[in-house]
């Protein structure tokens, strides 16, 4: 088990290294020159050269990436002497555009993304699995048809469309919730939750649909297994046959998807943040891309990739506990 985890952790580091390298290479061929952007006017060749040296852009690409990795471990500074910009470890890069370390920017943005993700995930897991169970247990009835229709609607509607209609109805028409923005958790749980309730509901609706479909098909597959027939033949109450025997077996793929989805969302709920004008990681990334702010893009991408990779690993380890047939050798 420990050997397995150690091997996976090394694999995780390799994936992150490759992700970072690829991001670097892609942006190295960027059409515009970040040094020229922050060079100011008039931009003489000498100043441009100085800016380039200051930003570390005069080195070959692999050297730049190496310095980035060094900074991640030991921190780094840009420029010399009193005026040098400090970026303490773990340094995820320094945004010359915003004149602050990328880590500081992620630090402000991350709580927003976490707030969106955690609330929405709890909602969609409960509602999705419950809907799927009702559908499977009452297969072929109007319950099943209604749930199937609802989940198809959820699967086919893009998040932003549900979000926009939600803002229009609940925000503008009925004035039940704030239209956009974010309130810090420290400002009180009331304002925090009231700003988040709409994004939660929208994300939960769209995602719960996928979970309902998965739960239904998994349960129906499990219901056909011999051990379920046996459990029923033994006279076990239906509650236990479904809640304990069937759901347990259907849980593995659901847990897999849940882990992956949370990992992806923690890396930036890009569309939700855009629709509800919340300044989370996704916003940070879109802004960085729009301003050609390379350090922000690389930093956020790596930070996001970390969650995806970590979620992958966690799910695989959980596998062993959820499904005794899987052995982590």
């Amino acid at each position: 088990m420990l050997r397995y985890i150690a091997r996976r952790l090394i694999g995780m580091a390799v994936v992150l290294l490759i992700t970072g390298a690829v991001t670097y290479v892609i942006f190295y061929w960027m059409p515009s020159d970040p040094a020229r952007l922050s060079c100011g006017k008039p931009c003489t060749p000498e100043t441009l050269h100085q800016v380039r040296a200051y930003m570390g852009l005069n080195q070959p690409i692999w050297e730049q990436y190496w310095h980035f990795l060094e900074g991640l471990v030991g921190g780094r500074s840009f420029g010399i002497g009193q005026a040098a910009a400090q970026c303490p470890a773990p340094c995820l890069g320094y945004s010359f555009h915003q004149s602050m370390p990328v880590r500081t920017m992620i630090g402000t943005a991350f709580p927003v993304t976490v707030s969106i993700t955690v609330g929405a995930a709890a909602l969609w897991l409960v509602f999705g699995v419950a809907t799927g169970m009702i559908s499977a247990v009452k297969r072929g009835t109007w319950w099943d048809r209604g749930a199937t229709l609802l989940s198809l609607t959820g699967v086919a509607t893009p998040t932003y469309l549900v979000g926009l209609l939600g803002i229009l109805l609940l925000g503008f028409q009925w004035r039940l919730v704030p239209v956009n923005g974010y309130a810090n958790f420290t400002d009180g749980i009331g304002p925090w939750a009231s700003h988040l309730i709409l994004p939660w509901a929208v994300l939960a609706f769209v995602n719960a649909a996928v979970y309902a479909r998965l739960t239904r098909s998994q349960l129906l597959e499990v219901f056909g297994e011999d051990y379920i027939t046996t459990a029923r033949a033994k006279g076990l109450p239906e509650r236990i046959v479904i809640g304990k025997h069937s759901l347990r077996a259907a849980l593995t793929p659901i847990a897999t998807m849940f882990g992956m989805d949370i990992g992806l969302l923690l890396g930036g709920a890009i569309i939700t943040e855009k629709v509800f004008s919340m300044q989370g990681l996704g916003y940070l990334l879109l802004q960085g891309v729009g301003q050609l702010d390379l350090p922000v893009v690389v930093g956020v991408t790596l930070f996001s990739a970390f969650f995806v990779v970590a979620a992958n690993l966690l799910v695989d380890i959980l596998y062993g506990y959820l499904d005794p047939r899987v052995s982590l050798a």
Partner: peptide, 18 residues
């Protein structure tokens, strides 16, 4: 595995600009 761990959406956004 590497591809599945990539934040694909983020890369697509970055590529769209570059």
């Amino acid at each position: 595995d590497v591809f599945l761990a990539f934040p694909g959406m983020i890369f697509m956004i970055a590529l769209g600009i570059v």
